[in-house]
Amino acid sequence: MNEKAYYESVNTKNELKLRELQKELPPFCREFFIGMKASVSSRTLLAYAYDLGIFFDFIHQNNPICAKKPVNEFTIDLLDQISPMDIEEYLDYLRVYEKDGVAHTNDERGISRKLASLRSFYNYYFCKEMITKNPAQLVRMPKKHEKTITRLDVDEVAMLLDEVESGEKLTERQQKFHEQTKCRDLAIMTLLLGTGIRVSECVGLDITDVDFRNNGIKVHRKGGAEVVVYFGDEVRTALLNYLEERNTIEAVEGSNNALFLSLQKKRIGVRAVENLVKKYSKLITTMKNITPHKLRSTYGTSLYRETGDIYLVADVLGHKDVNTTKKHYAALEDERRRTAPKYIHLRDE
């Protein structure tokens, strides 16, 4: 399976799951999902389906009229009967609710995302003039409290890579597997820390996507854009060492061209990379919950500190809007501004 086939496989799985979820939603939702396919990813559509499922369950449980028939029999006129207050009560419900005997909670980000899903849903039908009211647009987004960006310090990066290479602190059982995966794990960790690519982009890489002549890898960004991300000598060395080993492995059918393989000789998955990052990072810091995305933040921080170019950081990380990047690195921007006075001398001493 090449990189294109891998992403097609992911989209197919998302599409099949979406169809299953749609069976539990009102029939008129189908038009929304068809209409949105051209502008959002299959993963986003799936998130919409989950969010709408929670919303209609809430309406079914809390509205006496809606309780009289199942959710999959709701008609579109229901949307005009829902008020902004109904939606605000729904958002309050989201903070803590129970479904199938399991308690669920949402912080401001989770609530904001679900309101954003509802806004997109209502906007679609309102713009199509299929409903006359748009109550979701009248509800204010919850105020988000910016989270502190977790990233590794320079010495922690060195300690992490040393640990991946040595495996000294791993358990005896883990060390047995470490002998088989050390070269691969070091290549993955060095690549993530040295390029800032997303974990989904990492697992989607094919052997043919690596260009050692120009020190670049070809990745598929969100939205389908194909770009080349360049790497330095440390990443080059780690990849070359791993490829010597990779070229001796006969992958299972469908993963022949995959760059990174699991122990089952299949293309490695996102969850497996998340687990290996967690395994090694816990050996060097218990205070920080390190994920592949935190390694991406670590790279962005290092690049910004070295260059001071927020536009370069945005471009390399694949952020469509530089304001997204600025939001993540605002503290560093303030740190740089504080150094400005020392460069200005009004009179020679």
Rank of each mutant, 00 (worst) to 15 (best):
R267W: 01
L312P: 13
L205M: 12
R246I: 03
C29K: 04
D321H: 06
L186H: 06
V157K: 08
Y299M: 07
H104A: 08
E8H: 04
H178K: 15
Y90Q: 10
F231H: 13
P341Q: 03
K342N: 08
G101C: 12
G196M: 06
T171A: 07
L303G: 07
L295H: 05
L193R: 08
N72R: 08
L283N: 03
E8P: 02
L317I: 01
R221S: 06
R213N: 14
R140N: 15
R246G: 03
I290Q: 04
A136T: 07
P341C: 06
E226W: 09
M36V: 12
V154N: 09
I65A: 10
C29N: 06
E253P: 03
H328V: 01
H220M: 15
L283C: 08
F126P: 00
I188P: 00
E226Q: 04
D209T: 07
D334Y: 13
E163G: 01
L115V: 06
E15W: 09
N106A: 02
H178A: 08
K279P: 06
V203R: 05
L295Y: 08
G35V: 11
A47Y: 02
R305H: 04
T325G: 03
L78G: 07
G53Y: 07
I310A: 03
C127Y: 11
I82D: 08
V273W: 01
V316R: 05
